[in-house]
Design a protein around this nucleic acid. Structure first.
Lengths: 223, 223
DNA sequence: CCATTTCATTTTATCGATAATTTAGACGTC
DNA sequence: GACGTCTAAATTATCGATAAAATGAAATGG
């Protein structure tokens, strides 16, 4: 297992937000396993920033829900029990289903166009195996889609739960086959946006969440 | 209008969390109007803490969603447009309805007992006009109730949205009549917990939110 | 040999000072 | 009088140093 110390970030200017983003990526790509300790000094050394920023970044990560802090003990990458995963996904499904139901159908052409563009970029990244791009366009796709529901607070909560499920989704990034299935789901969603049936769309959005959840739960139950 | 400077907190030891709580209370009781600026120096003077804690408290309040920060400009108490209130309440209703639906009925006796105790305390505070107590027992009542759904993440999100709607709920604290109605709702909820009909309970929980929302929306529309 | 205490090390928490940024008002120019 | 520029005041952002707390290893006593 690679440790934090092996990763260096020379010559890049960092603030607390970019540190948080970098670490977020490390987690989804499995470079940082759940439970890993995150000491301020390590971040200090890796990102060449002052203690203030390292600290701030950890606070950031905590409010983003991907790190847990204990007083006077520092932070560790959040690790999820299967119970917690179940809970998180129950709420994710609730939120995303409702967002889908609230999207006015048929959706306007600009939205379709925007999503189609994201979808194509996503497809390219899947085929070329550029995981960072896959992850990023995937999230942008969903946030754009759900953004159409018109309730920005709901979208914010959806975003929060997307981050909470980061370690769960990490597994699914490894197989090109599952990425292709996910990509196909996205295509169907765009089709549904052209129609008038919110319920089918909502069901599709919920079904879309199942594979990575199931894969993760199966994975933890055998350990 | 009372300003921040008029309030002093001599002789009390504060950390960032207690400052956040104190300010939260100021907001719900209307002592701090939405839009009010919150400078670090003001908090410094009021709570006699170091800059570090004042700052931390503001960050806290920001993540709690009751304060907005702009870079290099400081924080202001969040003010909600009617659009935002509508959005927040749409999500609140979604979350609380689902939580109610997930509560296993009939509820265990211990839960009934716990809620009944809270309910009685709430009633006493209403009658004696002790608003701080009303607010606190009210929130504890709801968190205990929804906690019975078994999904701690859902409860956390419900809590978040309770805080987001703080300024909305502030209005309803002023009239004893509306507090009594609210109190009666709680009694009905406890009754429902003894039965087996989740849907009635859920509807009651949603209806319970309407008065303060409507009062607030009516209030802002006439200005 | 086990339990307990002490102590050095590691790590986080807190602080006051300084730097950087924004704001608003004074001033001059067109 | 409108417009832009320049300062001074107010305020937040950043920093390095120090304090406090937790941890684990070594020493001590039973």
């Amino acid at each position: 297992m690679q440790t934090l110390d092996d990763i260096s970030e020379d010559g890049i200017e960092h603030d607390d937000l970019s540190i948080a983003r970098a670490l977020e990526e490390d987690i989804i790509f499995g470079r940082l396993a759940p439970g890993t300790r995150l000491t301020e000094d390590t971040l200090l050394a890796r990102f060449h920033v002052t203690r203030h920023f390292a600290r701030q970044a950890i606070v950031q990560l905590e409010t983003m829900g991907i790190v847990v802090r204990e007083r006077n003990k520092g932070a560790t990458v959040r690790s999820l029990t299967s119970r917690q995963v179940q809970e998180i996904y129950d709420v994710r499904e609730l939120l995303q289903r409702q967002a889908a139901l609230w999207i006015p159908l048929p959706a306007p052409d600009e939205l379709i166009a925007e999503l189609t563009a994201l979808h194509e970029e996503h497809g390219r990244h899947v085929e070329s195996g550029y995981l960072r791009g896959v992850h990023e366009t995937n999230d942008r796709f969903h946030l754009t889609l759900f953004g159409a529901c018109g309730n920005s607070h709901l979208v914010q909560s959806i975003e929060l739960y997307m981050r909470l499920s980061l370690p769960v989704r990490a597994n699914s990034m490894s197989s090109k086959e599952s990425l292709r299935i996910s990509h196909e789901h996205h295509r169907l969603m765009i089709e549904m946006l052209k129609g008038r049936d919110n319920w089918v769309l909502a069901q599709l959005c919920v079904d879309h969440l199942q594979p990575s959840k199931k894969r993760y739960l199966a994975y933890v139950s055998e350990n």
